[in-house]
């Protein structure tokens, strides 16, 4: 029974990491851009939930989602479209700059101290499964993430836009030669990434009860690690990487002797390095790394 507890912990944390990683991977697969400012989308989500706390909950969540998606689209239009097709280093520096700029701006506006926020307090209830009692939030996190993954999969495989996105991810130039509009698929990738960022921030703030200007930094770092682990450029890899990262974290936390437990994160990275030694491109290698944009 205790083992089931660990499985649920791992799945629940892994779900969060998978959402973060997938948000980063969707954009990377199309643009070869590692968007560190994805974390600031989480922040925008958190603060939207905070500032809209007077509204009925469904409206509050819906409106916050719209705000984050719009923020993602604006970010693409203003910050990343001008450097589209530039060298990888340029993209990387730009994304760092955007992340830093947004965080600094947020500190000016709302201050740097964390604020507490309550969303759906019902989720903190414990659910009894046999002798086991687990937070409802964990189960909801797992379920919501599963719905997102299934929904995205259906979108990517069953709709024309989804097929166009996958084509663009594999060979952007050829997709354009067939009439796939570059602006539209890139905006779509950012929109999806914004939606995933919002779901991630919703689950994260439900878990921590806090929003802060720096709240996206940890998640985006986890996303970065998960995408590298899973294979840069592969969305399936990013999800897999997220769940592996979550499982490793929970496993080390649970089974390491107490005196070395504080080195948990170092050991997680050790495993990452070990994986990369044997599979330098990550677990899943994308079909093609042809020229983008």
């Amino acid at each position: 029974m205790e083992n089931l507890q660990y499985v649920i912990d791992a799945l629940s944390l892994g779900s969060l990491y998978a959402l973060f990683a997938l948000g980063v991977a969707v954009v990377f697969s199309i643009m070869r851009l590692i968007n560190f400012a994805h974390g600031e989308l989480l922040m925008v989500g958190g603060f939207s939930l905070l500032f809209l706390s007077g509204l009925p909950v469904a409206l509050r969540i819906g409106l916050s989602a719209v705000i984050v998606v719009v923020a993602a689209l604006v970010m693409e239009r203003i910050a990343f479209r001008p450097v589209r097709g530039a060298r990888d280093e340029t993209l990387l520096v730009t994304s760092f700059a955007v992340s830093y700029l947004l965080q600094s701006l947020a500190i000016v506006i709302v201050g740097s101290s964390p604020r507490s926020v309550g969303i759906l307090p019902q989720l903190s209830k414990q659910v009894h499964l046999g002798t086991l009692s687990v937070p409802l939030l964990d189960l909801v996190s797992i379920a919501v993430t599963a719905v997102c993954l299934v929904g995205l999969t259906l979108f990517l495989t069953r709709t024309s836009l989804g097929i166009q996105m996958r084509a663009a991810a594999e060979n952007f130039r050829m997709a354009r030669c067939l009439g796939v509009p570059a602006n539209r698929v890139i905006a779509l990738a950012f929109g999806i990434s914004g939606l995933l960022a919002f779901v991630g921030s919703l689950l994260l703030t439900s878990r921590t009860g806090l929003v802060s200007t720096g709240m996206g930094t940890g998640p985006v770092f986890a996303a970065f690690v998960a995408t590298i682990l899973g294979g840069m450029g592969s969305m399936v890899g990013a999800v897999l990487g997220g769940y592996i990262l979550g499982s490793l974290t929970v496993a080390f936390q649970a089974f390491l002797p107490l005196e070395v437990r504080s080195y948990r994160d170092a050991m997680v990275f050790g495993v990452l390095v070990l994986v990369l030694v044997f599979r330098p491109d990550g677990i899943i290698q994308p079909a093609s790394q042809k020229q983008r944009v």
Partner: peptide, 14 residues
């Protein structure tokens, strides 16, 4: 430059 990871039908759709 066929899309290797997409099916034949998906390539044709494009």
């Amino acid at each position: 430059d066929v899309f290797a990871s997409l099916t034949v039908a998906e390539n044709l759709h494009l």
